[in-house]
Amino acid sequence: MMPTSPAKRPRPLSPNIQIYRPQLTSVLSIANRISGVVLSLGAVVLVIWLLAAAAGPEAYAVVQGALASWLGQVVLFGCTFAFFLHLCGGIRHLVWDMGYGYELSLIYASGWAVVAGSVALTVLAWIASLLLGD
């Protein structure tokens, strides 16, 4: 390899994420990561909720009211979807970590199963919640 003289400008870096095709493998990987970060924020809400319950009925009512609001429901729905996505994706990762499921056809089959499973479980959870809430 020819030494680069200091006067010469650096070689360009060929594009990566700017041109690389999003595919089920990379999209579900980043989705698992984003849902994990969302759930970290959801965990903060969980602690606030528990602290409010410990503080007494007034504080608890304030938090319950916030969660029942339009914005609170959107946040809860997002957390539910993030939870089921992270759960299904996490189980897929655990199977991989045991050394199974690496055939390309299985990678794609399990990937679509994660997508379908997390959507279905989110919808089911909210139907159950709405039925019980009334």
């Binding site: 969980l46 602690v47 528990l50 602290l51 319950a53 410990a54």
Partner: peptide, 10 residues
């Protein structure tokens, strides 16, 4: 810690 203390307090 805050979450656990809240649960135990309740």
């Amino acid at each position: 810690t805050a979450g656990i203390i809240a649960v135990l307090h309740i």
